[in-house]
Design a protein around this nucleic acid. Sequence first.
DNA 1: CGTAGGGTTGACAGCTTTCAAGAAGTGTGG
DNA 2: CCACACTTCTTGAAAGCTGTCAACCCTACG
Lengths: 277, 277
Amino acid sequence: MLHTLSDRDPITLAPVVRPHCESRLLHALGKAPDASSNMTPPLRQRVATGTVLLHEGAPARHICVVQAGTFKSAKTGDDGYEHVLGFSLRGDLLGYDGLANGAYASAAVALEDSVVFTLPLRQFETLRHADAAFDLALQAALSQQMSRAIELAELMSAVAADARLARFLLHVSARMAEQGLSPRRLRLRMNRREIASHLGVAHETVSRCFSLLAERGYLLVDNREIEIVDMDGLRAHAHCTRGPAEEPQQGADPSRPALTRSSANGSRSRWRAAAAA
Amino acid sequence: MLHTLSDRDPITLAPVVRPHCESRLLHALGKAPDASSNMTPPLRQRVATGTVLLHEGAPARHICVVQAGTFKSAKTGDDGYEHVLGFSLRGDLLGYDGLANGAYASAAVALEDSVVFTLPLRQFETLRHADAAFDLALQAALSQQMSRAIELAELMSAVAADARLARFLLHVSARMAEQGLSPRRLRLRMNRREIASHLGVAHETVSRCFSLLAERGYLLVDNREIEIVDMDGLRAHAHCTRGPAEEPQQGADPSRPALTRSSANGSRSRWRAAAAA
DNA sequence: CGTAGGGTTGACAGCTTTCAAGAAGTGTGG
DNA sequence: CCACACTTCTTGAAAGCTGTCAACCCTACG
């Protein structure tokens, strides 16, 4: 169930070359399209769930921009442990870490069916010098990426596991909002183990923290479907550097009965939140 | 004891404008100097220990390149907790995270008397387009920075505190080696609290881990003077994702008596390592 | 229908944090 | 030069949280 793209032939699944792709690339990078597309258009490439788009350690020959979908960036240690560095959405660059050493420093794996623009490095350089708009968009994307790296470093810093998870969810929520989606209803593309690896905790702990945040009344949890019902509460919980968020009054708020036990019964009430008892 | 540079007048301490500074900048960025310096030279600026070179949240008007010395990048939370994001040495860029949002995402503070090149953003853009060598050097530095960010994210990931410290020391060692300095004798420019913040642990834990690594015979520790005496052992200790490095035989190796108790007696034997008892 | 993978929860050992105190280093002023 | 204050570093003890091991439920899939 895990496809891989050969390094020699990175366009394996469904290469679709379209006119005006460059404008779309610029759009994906967050800039208004530029009419001066006199370059050969970049390749638009579909990537199926589970596909390894970039292999860690492989010679870096391409730079990719996520146009749709979700990727995880991961690095596998000598002991086989996979460390998830981050998740990439529309507009994010993949493979840029390969410029320095000529080889990708991390792998990129599609977590859902996705679409990327693929630029050979040579074309990448050419584009940068020929198209000012592209260069600016790139520059901005890079800087953004850098701030995001900082933000994510903060996420993993000296806090309790539940606060980390809260920050992670707020981060995801913010990115959803950036793309015009609902910041409250999240559909996580990654499993618990990947979240755990990203946050630097055990996957069981992630599970427990989801339960805790649900108990507190901040979330409704149904597997990967998350609904944030108390954004401020979640934010408060995320802010506490240490300790359980300065005495949350009582364990569970009686005024907010909230549902419990995932998938107890049918249709819509599969949410997990707090035990009424 | 904490100087700050005004945002309006960033050249406060000892502005020294020299000819051919651009070549030196390129050199600092890791590239061979280019003879075609027809630009106004960037400003070379001395920064005293403790000076805040870039203020978090301040409008981003400059990009700096570290020419000599050490800086810490830090972000202060709403609760006043300072999170140390990383340490910057010669060739590293400071302030690049400000390009995206127009304001610096993190502060940069000198940990020792240092020297930086300061480029106004406008000049920065001009330089990039006019000087291909500069642009390439910048690109490489950015990519390097990105890989470094990944590396550091790895450092903080799901491992025990002692392994984190081991990784951190190996990281510092490698950077020292990059600059032609000894990879074994390290002179840390940051205090325990800053290391702790960077690693995401309590500063007491850092202290204890130093003691542990010294006990194991990997290090000699005298405050901020560190000597790595068993690089392979340290590396092995850093590699273990979890657990105390698969049974280190016994607590202390009798064949390596090693010194103990810092500053017990005079001259050179102030190293701390293992209790002989 | 059986298997495999994902998610949740419990129990316990272990590590880390926190609180507290002491030792050592640094800088200032008398 | 010494005393003093302040910061940094180290160490101890107790409490808390997290990791590990294990079991269970559910869904997807062959």
